[in-house]
Design a protein around this nucleic acid. Structure first.
Lengths: 222, 222
DNA sequence: CGGCTGTGAATTGTATACAGTATGCAATTT
DNA sequence: AAATTGCATACTGTATACAATTCACAGCCG
């Protein structure tokens, strides 16, 4: 065969750096609002500034960083307002993706339950958040509109550090396990509309505790 | 005053280049599917490769380019499938944004009609597409969910070169002027639901001619 | 004649060097 | 003592240089 198109090609440094820095931001090693010093960061990662800057450039497009022309890159601050806007979009996008995907086959339903079971046992914030996202992506894996799925992934990336920041300070609140079970139950009985409604409820919930915490934190700093 | 925060600061080269290259892609000077030669392009734009690569990196995140690790950047091809997916999202997102924005004040309604009037007189593809986008953005300018508005803008940028490519080959089909008028009419009578429905109809229409043209083009090349 | 292999040019990836701008501190003035 | 100016330093923006990889084509072998 002539092409194995964009298949698992080993990434270049810039790509790897984007992942590395994104991780540093998500898990707090680069604090929200902090200024990014290119020289220090490049030295710490043992690379030159050129590929690092390409990575920072991409992260800016993703919304994880903000660029101010002659002052440099800053880690985007955590604001209640942004989180609220992000959270409001999921109940709009996810049910539509599920509707387009249709009722999953039995294999996928089994996978979903397996993920949910692991989610119930997990206790570290990182694992919980990651597994929850995996579950939601698996749910809509059959959605033919890949652009829609990409948008949902984009929102996941942007909300992840909010969720981790909360879970580190406050103990992990109630988990979404039961909501997830309600969705798969509806799907098993072939009730797509019911599943979409349950999914919407899942996404609408869990919103309030996070927002309350953030608003409180903003008040305290003002 | 100490700060005029990120206000209209003169952009750096990378930013300007991103705009320049995006324009080249949108209006076809960089053909869909073409490989981007960094050396040639940098020479043509009279800059060095470093800021150009940062710009290309960002355009990749926007979906205008695709990066293949050791082979370089390629202009993303025009596919009926992607366009279909993009067009399917607007009827989902725009009405929601309008609902959140609420009925606009009389000033904004007047602005909308003015834009629509100019749209009716315009005849060049570039102007028509640009004004149509301006109208839709003005319609939802009051939407408090800025992330949602950004997503709509993102879709506009990605669909623009499809629309221009079509309009250059085929003469501009029917315009959306009447649909727009229906939306503002509903809004003037305070009927938000009706306006959302009319908007949805506007966005669902105009889809078919473009898709038909693209599919035909793809068949001819196969 | 078709497919393989090696070699040189072209192209991308990364590092380094240099120039322009911002930032913080100290000296100076009011 | 507060404000302001000037200067040294640190940092970002851009260019250039070098290394590593890919690509195209010629020649060779089956």
């Amino acid at each position: 065969m002539q092409f194995s198109p964009h298949l698992a090609d080993r990434p270049n440094l810039s790509d790897s750096l984007a992942d590395a820095v994104r991780t540093m931001i998500v898990d707090g090693r680069l604090a929200a609002g902090a200024r990014v010093n290119e020289v220090h960061l490049a030295a710490a990662l043992k690379v030159s500034r050129t590929p690092l800057r390409e990575a920072l450039s991409r992260l800016t497009a993703e919304g994880a960083l903000q660029a101010v022309p002659r002052r440099g890159y800053f880690v985007a601050p955590l604001t209640a307002s942004e989180l609220e806007q992000l959270y409001d979009l999921r109940p709009l996008l996810d049910p539509e993706a599920l509707r387009l995907a249709g009722v999953p086959g039995p294999g996928r339903l089994q996978t979903l339950d397996a993920i949910n079971a692991r989610l119930a046992r997990e206790s570290t914030p990182e694992k919980i958040v990651a597994l929850d996202d995996v579950w939601h992506l698996e749910l809509i894996a059959g959605c033919p509109n890949r652009v829609l799925v990409e948008m949902i992934e984009q929102i996941m990336r942007r909300t992840r550090r909010y969720e981790l920041a909360l879970m580190r300070e406050a103990p992990p609140a109630e988990k979404a396990v039961d909501h997830h079970a309600a969705v798969t139950a509806a799907l098993r009985s072939g009730d797509l509309d019911g599943a979409c409604a349950a999914l919407k409820a899942n996404l609408t919930h869990g919103r309030e505790p996070l927002l309350a915490w953030l608003r409180d934190r903003e008040r305290r700093r003002a």
